[in-house]
Design a protein around this nucleic acid. Structure first.
Length: 778
DNA sequence: CACAGGTCTCTTTTT
DNA sequence: GAGACCTGTG
């Protein structure tokens, strides 16, 4: 490949960014300006034209998904040798380096990586030991303070020097030190430590730093606006020698301040590197001009930006739509129904759509409506797969096998499944371990010597440690996936779950099966699969990384998760003051700054859309179980009225009225479901775009179209239909099991026990209030 | 020691 | 509304 081939199809600025390989380079890449493309072509140019060895190139991204995508495109473009290029996230890059040199920092190479939940457990233990009243001081607040310190690369000692003058500062210094001590004893690092320790390694061992400085002739950092101070230090130390550092970012898309991102890294790049070349990519290849205009109108309300004006050659496209609904239910219903309609009409696939919102809590409404309308979706974020209890349990076994020093892991599983080892026993072992300066697991191995433990108890503990020792032997000649299977079966975990015989237990078992497939996947992909390697990959995975672009489904996710992605059709939901921008930002002391960050988030959201963008909001929304009125987000108002397609105004109808009338809570719940369910057209909030019900009624494609709630049925008395909205013989939909037929309804106390036959799951008995079944028309 | 039932707290965003 | 934590009982 020659230069012309590599730069073919690039615009002048993109070409410049590709060819400007020497020295510091700042690429200010507006949304949708083709920055990934530039980076990929730049790497190709380095390798194919300048004959740089692939192993001398380091490209850093924030998410695994971004790294994978870049890796694939690089592979396709340069082929042989591409795998030698380090395309990694900050965290995985640091881990890779730290594994190799962990001993120099007093860790061993099998160190474990703690997630936020693990950190919280450690902090809780410290609170207990120090007898701190958790009502007055929150563990999470302390952890947050520690994390901020780490992001600024402030050590416990430095922190103490700077902050010990007041009570809070003194307390945090104290806990910071203790927390670090605890982690080190467990041979564990948290997310922030990975960066901090990598930088520490470089600072304390110049020879190691030199090794990597020599190696990486060319470095590229993506999403530079979201780097924090340690990340900056990491990068700048590595690049100090050859100074071929190319950073790509957009200050308008800086949305991770809460995580320590330091926007000055990008704003001051030219001060830090006075000889930096600056390239601006301002042509947008993603969105129509209407969408781009809306984005520009919103973001221009921020101050202190790098001057930048995105433009496009694309046509104007459709106007940005704005729709306001009575409730969040109506909003979700509208969105889901419209998606369903557009897919059924054949103009779109499900994967063309994304629904973006500010908070994860909003996802439930959309999930429910999608299920209801049989729309395939993938929910990104929320509870991470790897944070689920059963997964953490199994991983704790693996961690104990791999790194017996990780006391958090061994304490977690010593009585899982139940072995008759209670809290008292755990405390005694733990105290013994503390005194002897050993790990929990090592102390457990000496159970019979621990004072206060009965013979019988010591024997139970011995069974546990014996089992772990067996597993260690197995680990020597079993693959990771085999080992997971062995753990699940031999520990009795599987039997315990099966004995429970509940839906929840079955779901947990399914998750474990999924973990096994992930292990298999890891074994096939990794060059040298190891247990540590698997644990590491699993620890650093983000939910967005699991999105497969090939699947045909709607994506539901937060605005934060959507960064870096694009979709033909985007819905931004919950455009309301107090939700977006969040009330937190409105009430904060540095409110102005925080609102600017929210505005950048809004900008990110708008610029995800290629063809059609719909902003939605609700008059009233249920928060904390309470319905509260909401006004339209300032961000919507910042877009000139004539640029918005506002649909047709509809009369407001308060759902609160529907709830009045002295019902008990159960009754109210039952009614509430109905009140929010699709209503007959005559009663409905009518907007030309929400009339999905009348459409789907005649739509032959819909096998399980939306239920048309018959308002007259409330006039009947005493029937289950009135109470539940369905009766024996009806088809109902369940959140998890899908559509099934009601076989029986039995009144039991305050609730109904409903028997439903689900074709895919068999016959289930469930309580109506809990199962939230909804009738579907056949 | 295990479990059930009640109480309290918290919801911004995440590698 | 959901999850963690506490408390009392078997």
């Amino acid at each position: 490949m020659n230069v012309n081939e590599i730069t073919a199809g690039l615009n002048d600025e993109q070409k410049e960014a590709v060819l400007q390989t020497e020295g510091p380079v700042l690429i200010l890449a507006g949304a949708g300006s083709g920055k990934t493309r530039v980076l990929v072509h730049r790497i190709s140019y380095l390798v194919n034209v300048l004959d740089v060895m692939p192993s001398q190139i380091l490209a850093i991204t924030f998410t695994n998904k971004a790294a994978d995508e870049m890796r694939n495109r690089v592979d396709n473009m340069i082929g042989f040798g591409a795998s030698q290029i380090w395309v990694m996230t900050f965290h995985s890059c640091c881990v890779r380096i730290l594994r190799r040199h962990a001993e120099l920092l007093g860790y061993d190479r099998y160190f474990t990586i703690y997630d936020t939940d693990d950190s919280l457990q450690i902090m809780k233990e410290i609170f207990r030991r120090k007898n701190v009243d958790t009502k007055r001081i929150k563990e999470r607040a302390v952890l947050h303070a520690i994390s901020s310190a780490k992001n600024e690369h402030v050590s416990p000692a430095q922190f103490a020097r700077m902050n010990s003058h007041d009570y809070w500062g003194g307390l945090v210094s104290d806990f910071y030190e203790e927390y670090q001590k605890q982690l080190k004893e467990n041979n564990a690092m948290d997310f922030d430590d990975l960066l901090v320790n990598a930088v520490e390694l470089f600072d304390k061992h110049p020879d190691v730093l030199e090794l990597y400085q020599e190696r990486f002739l060319y470095m590229m950092v993506d999403e530079y606006q979201d780097t924090n101070t340690v990340q900056f230090e990491f990068v700048s130390r590595l690049a100090a020698r050859h100074r071929n550092l190319c950073v790509v970012g957009d200050d308008d898309q800086s949305i991770y301040k809460f995580r320590g991102a330091n926007i000055r890294n990008i704003l001051n790049f030219e001060q830090i590197f006075p000889d930096a070349k600056v390239v601006r990519l301002e042509q947008n290849y993603r969105s129509t001009s209407n969408i781009l205009d809306a984005a520009n109108e919103v973001i221009r309300n921020n101050r202190g930006r790098k001057s930048k004006k995105l433009w496009t050659e694309k046509g104007s496209g459709e106007k940005v739509r704005f729709r306001r609904f009575q409730t969040g239910f109506d909003e979700a219903e509208y969105v889901a129904a419209e998606i369903g309609r557009m897919v059924r009409s054949g103009e779109r696939n499900y994967k063309d759509f994304a629904v973006l919102y500010r908070t994860n809590a909003q996802s439930r409404l959309f999930e429910e409506k999608c299920l209801f309308l049989n729309i395939p979706y993938k929910l990104v974020g929320g509870v991470n797969f790897y944070a689920r209890r059963e997964i953490k349990d199994i991983l704790a076994y693996l961690k104990t096998i791999d790194n017996a020093v990780d006391s958090l892991a061994s304490m977690r599983i010593v009585n899982i499944p139940k072995r008759g080892i209670g809290q008292t026993t755990v405390n005694k072992i733990s105290a013994y371990a503390q005194d002897a300066g050993m790990s929990f697991y090592d102390a457990a191995k000496e159970a019979e010597q621990i004072p206060g433990l009965s013979k019988a108890t010591a024997k139970k503990v011995g069974t546990f440690t014996g089992f772990i020792e067996e597993l260690r032997n197995e680990a020597l000649h079993q693959t990771v996936s085999e080992l997971v299977r062995t753990v699940v079966i031999d520990s009795g975990y599987k039997d315990a779950l099966e004995a429970e015989d509940t839906d929840e237990a079955r779901e947990r078992m399914q998750n474990i099966d999924e973990l096994i497939s992930k292990a298999v996947q890891y074994e096939t992909n990794a060059d040298h699969p190891t247990l540590s390697g698997f644990l590491e990959e699993v620890a650093l995975i983000a939910d967005i990384d699991t999105v497969d672009d090939g699947d045909d489904r709607v994506l539901l996710m937060t605005l934060h998760s959507a960064k870096g992605l694009e979709f033909p059709i985007v819905y931004m939901a919950g455009m309301e003051e107090g939700l977006f921008p969040s009330s937190m930002s409105l009430n904060a002391e540095d409110s102005d700054e925080q609102i600017e960050e929210e505005r950048r988030l809004c900008y990110v959201g708008i610029t995800r859309a290629k063809e059609l963008l719909t902003l939605t909001c609700a008059y009233e929304r249920m928060t904390r179980g309470q319905i509260e009125p909401h006004s339209v987000s300032r961000f919507v108002r910042e877009i000139a009225r004539d640029k918005l397609d506002q649909g047709r105004k509809a009369p407001a109808k308060s759902t609160i009225d529907n709830l009045k009338g002295g019902f008990g809570k159960d009754m109210r719940d039952a009614i509430q479901t109905k009140a929010f369910a699709p209503k007959p057209p005559s009663k409905m909030f009518t907007n030309p775009y929400t009339s999905s019900n009348s459409n789907s009624r005649t739509d032959a494609h819909t096998k399980t179209g939306p239920r048309i709630y018959d308002g007259t049925s409330t006039k009947q008395t005493g029937s289950t239909n009135e109470m539940l909205g369905y009766e024996v013989g009806d088809s109902v939909i369940h959140k998890k099991f899908g559509v099934g037929t009601v076989k029986a309804i039995r009144e039991g106390g305050r609730d109904f026990e409903v028997t439903v036959d689900f074709p895919a799951w068999g016959v289930k008995k469930m309580f109506a209030a809990f199962a939230k079944l909804e009738k579907v028309e056949e």
